[in-house]
Design a protein around this nucleic acid. Structure first.
Ligand SMILES: [Mn+2]
Ligand SMILES: [Mn+2]
Ligand SMILES: [Zn+2]
Ligand SMILES: [Zn+2]
Lengths: 147, 147
DNA sequence: AAAACAATTAGGAATCGTTACGATTTATTG
DNA sequence: CAATAAATCGTAACGATTCCTAATTGTTTT
């Protein structure tokens, strides 16, 4: 996913172009990681001081609807990121410090689809691995060093 | 996990016995499924009309701390259930209608622990399968039948 | 370019789940 | 029973998200 592609999809779906929408998309293009609504708001308010929370949430929602963004809930908050370029279904390692992700090519559902029946209708699943990325670990260690 | 065992653990850890705590535990013993704090509150308020939200959340928290309850976040809400009797690490199919679960004996981490390194420190993971249990599916179909 | 129309927005209030608080009550111990 | 610490109530505060309405803006049509 990238900004121009996203803007095209947006147009096709009948949504209007606004500078704020472009900049929101640009933010996700720059920061290749999960962002909270608050982080998005703070970032956009640098250029648009009056920007409203409603606008952020509404646009995050429509972009998610169009599969331009993907959302996950971490620690009680919605987190958004550009949808992965990989077309195939996959999962993520997520750094809980900075929101950066790494892809896991395999999906656990492949191994147990057979066993999961008995009248239970599967509608979705969530598989995420949490931790701290190498970069954040270095940062933490430095902080701890000069206490 | 069961009520008397839970009450013992509670005592050992220096927590006081209260009738409310016993009834909260009894609720989880009866309802073998995920419950929200609200459901717990509503249920206990039948016998204790003045029961406060604070009391519910505090007790859910300490019981989780003692591994008497386990918690997961579903659709933006904390959900609690009695910890599984199975000692081994495992995962769940969860009915999003009623909170009932079925166990999945395998853990996807076993298959990819080898590949997950590269400086990323894993601290946790979440694997849950969502859907509708056979019972809830029947209920829904009946409802749909006489519209 | 102006008018018409629908989509978008700001700003703030409302809602929801959860946590925090001080004053009062209760369980436990001796 | 008295002393002590823990538990509770009632309510307020909180942060994230949603909802509302009047004003503004982007787009399409004349
Ligand atoms: Mn990905
Ligand atoms: Mn289980
Ligand atoms: Zn990181
Ligand atoms: Zn069910």
């Amino acid at each position: 996913m990238n900004v121009t592609k996203a803007l095209n999809i947006m147009k096709e779906q009948g949504f209007k172009y606004t500078a704020k929408r472009e900049e929101l998309l640009q933010l996700f293009s720059d920061e290749k990681r999960y962002l909270t609504a608050k982080e998005v708001l703070n970032s956009l308010q640098k250029n648009y001081p009056g920007m409203s929370v409603d606008t952020v949430y509404r646009n995050l929602a429509i972009f998610e609807e169009m599969d331009i963004l993907e959302m996950t809930e971490l620690e009680g908050e919605m987190h958004f990121r550009f949808s992965c370029s990989t077309t195939a279904h996959h999962h993520h390692l997520i750094c809980l410090e900075c929101g950066k992700t790494r892809e896991i090519e395999t999906c656990p559902m492949d191994w147990l689809n057979e066993n999961v029946d008995g009248g239970f209708e599967v509608t979705g699943h969530k598989f995420e691995i949490y931790g701290m990325c190498a970069e954040c670990k270095r940062t933490k260690q430095k902080e701890a060093a000069h206490v």
